[in-house]
Design a protein around this nucleic acid. Structure first.
Length: 405
DNA sequence: AACTGATACAACCGCCATAGG
DNA sequence: TCCTATGGCGGTTGTATCAGT
């Protein structure tokens, strides 16, 4: 038998809270402060369990809650933190002011989990799975239906809360309501490449010698790996298999000393016609109407210092990326040590006959230091919350701060 | 217009950690 | 040290709402 319920449930109301109940709870807490949840319902005259009151307050009525949809920036933070600490929603929520763990959990489950796959860390002794069975993976689909967000309702009617429960909203004037589930792709790519903590000082890669179109400003450009790849503090992703033999896996098809990794994921839309005659693929969504959802995922490796024959230096970190349309993705070990790997995907969105691509990426510049060493000192990187077990809180805080720096 | 399936998200539930007696 | 109350967390469920048929 489990422990006794937190309160006597006979006669208590369950289910959705009415605006009247919200008013009562809100008035009570404003007058008496929060806490003492067990006695609160009785004192306030609510036929609710104290736990239910607490949840209602924390997740909905609290005045400091952020209104509106999760922004691309917030989404990125969620992705990053989830990649590092798993389903520790409260910890993740603590880094997103005004967001609740429940909200983030729901957002993850309904929006992100299907878009983002966490890839296995490749250890020295581990054999990579060569095929990932994506048939078993949920495929992101176009939103067909679903509830309209209550916050969206409030956005539409800023007086909603005042009308219904009598509290002030803090809906930002410029907040947007996204009812399609679509991600602001360009912004997200930009945010990802600009603000990702693991990619210190990176900037959006543009190739001024080949990319003249101003429309491509602030986009991420993928370059064939036979192109110049000496960039300072930039993100470079290589479609290494594009119309070439796959011997060109970049300068990194050699042994590396150590691999620790964290996957980054971001979503973008890709359509036909993004590949120009030079084989440069641009990730943006400008002017692309025929969009399919694809994911780009990358992992950042560190403790790598290598030079290729052209003198390219990959200092301290490497990144890999995969493009996938979630139909099929092959993972293969790459390099003698088997410690890193490339990803190929079927990109059915292309009409240029190239439907099987292999990508790799590099982040160049100084950056990841010892933080990742201890962050990933556990071998278990599959989103297991035990990842952080045993790490003292200061370290954990430092990690979070670093991840978000 | 009615029906159906998909979706978002609010709310519930059980378990765990911790404080305090 | 044990026991209990309580708060908190994460997994899961229920349902309102919507788009497609």
């Amino acid at each position: 038998m489990g422990r006794a319920p937190c309160c006597e449930k006979v006669g208590l109301k369950k289910g959705r809270w009415t605006s009247e109940e919200d008013k009562i709870l809100l008035n009570y807490i404003q007058a008496n402060g929060e806490g003492s949840w067990r006695s609160l319902p009785k004192n306030a005259g609510l036929l609710r369990c104290g736990k239910s009151c607490r949840l209602r307050w924390i997740n909905y009525l609290r005045g400091d809650l952020k209104r509106g949809n999760i922004s691309a920036e917030e989404e990125l933070i969620i992705i990053k933190l989830h990649a590092s600490m798993g389903n520790r929603w409260s910890v993740i929520a603590s880094q997103l002011p005004g967001r609740t763990d429940n909200e983030i959990k729901n957002y993850w489950n309904s929006h992100l989990s299907r878009k983002i796959h966490t890839f296995r860390r490749v250890s020295r002794t581990e054999t990579l799975p060569t095929i990932m069975d994506l048939a078993k993976v949920d495929i992101p689909v176009k939103r067909r239906g679903g509830r309209t967000s209550r916050w969206a309702m409030m956005k539409k009617d800023k007086k909603y809360i005042q009308k219904h429960v009598g509290i002030q909203t803090t809906i930002p004037k410029d907040s947007t309501v996204n009812t399609t589930g679509a991600i602001p792709t360009t912004a997200l790519v930009k945010e990802t490449t600009l603000s990702t903590a693991m990619i210190d000082d990176c900037m959006v890669l543009d190739r001024p010698d080949q990319v003249k179109d101003k429309e491509r400003d602030n986009s991420l450009v993928l370059c064939p790996d036979d192109q110049e790849r000496k960039y300072e503090n930039q993100v470079v992703l290589f479609p290494s298999g594009h119309e070439k033999e796959t011997e060109t896996l970049g300068p990194y098809d050699h042994e590396v000393d150590d691999i620790d990794g964290v996957w980054l994921g971001f979503d973008y839309n890709m359509s036909n016609g993004l590949m120009d005659s030079n084989g440069i693929l641009t990730l943006n969504d400008k002017g692309n109407e025929n969009l399919d959802n694809h994911n780009v995922m990358g992992t950042i490796h560190h403790d790598v210092e290598e030079k290729d024959s052209t003198g390219f230096v990959c200092a301290n970190k490497m990144a890999m990326a995969a493009i996938e349309d979630l139909e099929s993705v092959n993972y293969s070990s790459n390099g003698e040590s088997g410690e890193w790997y490339s990803c190929s995907s079927m990109a059915s969105g292309f009409d240029d006959g190239v439907d099987n691509w292999e990508w790799e990426g590099v982040v160049q510049g100084n950056g990841i230091s010892g933080m990742l060493s201890w962050l990933w000192e556990s071998d278990n990187l599959e989103g297991d919350s035990s990842n952080l077990a045993g790490i003292d809180p200061d370290k954990q805080d430092a990690m979070v701060a670093w991840l978000l720096s």
